[in-house]
Design a binder for these strands. Sequence first.
DNA 1: GGACTGACAGATATTGAAATCTGTCATCTG
DNA 2: CAGATGACAGATTTCAATATCTGTCAGTCC
Lengths: 196, 196
Amino acid sequence: MPPTSETLTAERILAATEEVLRRHGPAKATVVDVARALGVSHGSVYRHFRTKAALREAVTKRWLDRTTELLAEIAGATDRDPEARLREWLAALFAAKRRKAGGDPELFATYSVLVGDAGEAVSAHIAELTGQLATIVRDGVQAGTFAVDDPQTAAHAVFQATARFHDPNYAKEWERPGVLGEFEALVDLLVRGLRA
Amino acid sequence: MPPTSETLTAERILAATEEVLRRHGPAKATVVDVARALGVSHGSVYRHFRTKAALREAVTKRWLDRTTELLAEIAGATDRDPEARLREWLAALFAAKRRKAGGDPELFATYSVLVGDAGEAVSAHIAELTGQLATIVRDGVQAGTFAVDDPQTAAHAVFQATARFHDPNYAKEWERPGVLGEFEALVDLLVRGLRA
DNA sequence: GGACTGACAGATATTGAAATCTGTCATCTG
DNA sequence: CAGATGACAGATTTCAATATCTGTCAGTCC
C-alpha cells in the first residue's frame, strides 16, 4: 500500500503511532518504525512532534480523551438525580477501564506504560475527571441530597478513594470474583459520606 | 569479624539478609551474598529456607509485621472512642509509611519491590490490617456511633479507599504540599459514611 | 520557500560469550 | 547422625562490542 500520496498530517502520524504501539509494544516502538509505517523519513515526523516523548504524550492524550468524553455525558445530564448520576459515573468509569483491560490486555499494558511517563497529559486528564465529579457533587449540594464543604475537594477524595477501580496498577485485580461487590460497598460508603 | 562461632539459625540468616538487602538493593542481593556475610556456604542457607523466594518472603513478612504490631495497639484499645480510634489508626498507618518512605527512600524502594512479588505474606498482612480495622468498626457499631451491614466489608472498603496513603506505589506523592489535607478530607468522608 | 530527506553525533538498545547464581546432593566432620 | 560443605547442571546476569535509535541540520525537490 502506498499511503505516501496523502499529505503528512499530525493526525496520520498519531494513527500510525497507535498502530506501531499495538504491534510492537511500548518498549520497542520507535520513531523510525512510525516513519517507516508512513513511508517517510523519520525527520519528517520530527517536524510535527518535537520529541518522541511529545509524540507518545499526544497518543496518550487521545486515548485518555476517549474515556473522558464518554463520562462527560453522564456528568452533564443535569436533569437527572445527582446521587444516581454519581453512582452511574463511577460504575461507567470502572466498566470502561475493566473492558479495556480485559478485552486487549497487551494494548492496555502498553497504554499503562505510556500513562506512567506522560506527565502533563495525565494530570490534565485527572483534573478533567475530578472536574466532572465536582459538577455532579455540586448539583447534589444544590438539590439538597449532598452536604459537603467544598465540592472540588470532596470530588477529589471520591476519585482517590476509588483508585483501586480505575488505576491501571490494580488492573489484575479487576477480574477476581468479588470485585463488583467490593466496588458497590465502597460506592455505598462514599455516597453515604456525601449525603446531607 | 568471625560470626561463624554462633550456631546458624533462621533468625541470624534473616538479619544478614536484611543487611545484604540494605547494602546491595533487591536486584543484586543474592543468596551467596547472604552466606558470605554469615561466613558459611550457601548450601547451609538452603537448609533453613527452601528457596530464595521463601527467604525473601520471610524477610518481607518481618518488615510488614513491625507495622502491624504498632497498629494493633490502637486497634486493641477498646476503652476509647471508636471514631477517634479509627482516625488515629489510619493516621498512624499513613505516618508510619510516610516516615519509612521519606527517611530511607532506597530501603523503602527495596522493600516495595520485595512486597511486589511476595504473594502469601502480603495478603496475610492485608488480611491482618483489615481485621484490625474491622475490630474498630465493630466496636463502633456496638457503641452506636457507626451503622454498617457488615463490619468486615466496611473495613475492607475503608482500607481500599485509603490505598493512596499506604500503598507504596503512591509513595512519591506523599511529600507533595497538600497531601495531609487530602488525607483528612478522605478520612472525614469515610467516617461520615460509617456513622449511624 | 516550505515540506521533506538522509547523513551525522551522541545516547540507548541488542547480542552473545563469559561469569555468577540457584538449587541439589553425595560427601565430610564432630 | 545432624549439620555443614562444595562441586555440579541449568538458569540468570553481566559485560563489552555492535547495531539501532533520537534529535539536528545542511541540503534537495517540487
